[in-house]
């Protein structure tokens, strides 16, 4: 085999590969273990939330407040909708009407919005909230996109500055070398050809 200018240098290629093989071997295993716990094969995601009613319960939430509350709750089925939207539309979902029932029971039991969220959180965990909390680890999900964007903006600003500097330097070099005066050196013939090429916009 003769060396070809286009062929990948096998040695450098393999050297780089060697470092990554362990990662390759490990990755599927890690993910496999992780995923098996994620996917619920049953399809029923409802968990009962039935705290005892308060003594002498006073209903603190009207219908609109319940709707507003349910809009902040995620339906635990894979529909990605909130409880209110899901229960009013997706007829096949058995989860959202059941959770709605629990919420109404708690409202009638005298619970206010925060207490209801707390009770739901005890059973379902954070995933019942449609949007992640803006605290703790979940803060990352909110923070990262903007952090990345800011970093990117900064990188671009620096890049543009470098390019600008390159141009300044190059112009200086051109003027020193006399290239900037090329217009004087061009023959009429050359200018004519240039003009013709410029006029022709069919390209």
């Amino acid at each position: 085999m003769f060396p070809s200018p286009n062929a990948v240098s096998r040695r450098s290629f393999l050297r780089r590969g060697a470092a990554i093989v362990p990662a390759l071997v490990m990755a599927p295993g890690v993910l496999q273990g992780q995923v098996s716990s994620t996917v619920n094969m049953e399809g029923n995601y409802y968990l009962p939330v039935r705290p005892p009613a308060k003594p002498n319960p006073v209903v603190q939430l009207d219908e609109e407040a319940v709707i507003a509350l349910e809009r902040t709750l995620a339906c635990p089925c894979p529909c990605t909708l909130d409880i209110y939207t899901c229960r009013t539309t997706d007829v096949t979902c058995s989860n959202s009407p059941a959770i709605h029932g629990d919420v109404i029971r708690m409202v009638n039991g005298g619970y206010n919005a925060d207490e209801i969220l707390l009770e739901l959180d005890k059973v379902y965990g954070q995933r019942i909230m449609a949007s992640p909390a803006k605290s703790g680890f979940s803060l990352m999900v909110w923070f990262m996109p903007f952090a990345a964007l800011a970093t990117g903006a900064l990188a671009i600003a620096l890049l543009v500055r470098t390019w600008r500097q390159n141009a300044v330097n190059a112009t200086a070099a051109r003027v020193d070398g006399g290239v900037g005066r090329i217009g004087v050196q061009a023959t009429d013939d050359e200018m004519a050809r240039l003009q013709a090429a410029l006029r022709d916009d069919t390209r």
Partner: peptide
């Protein structure tokens, strides 16, 4: 999230 803090969370439309 589930991997790091062992808690499943929902990142939904909001």
């Amino acid at each position: 999230s589930e991997w790091v803090q062992d808690e499943k969370i929902t990142v939904g439309m909001p």
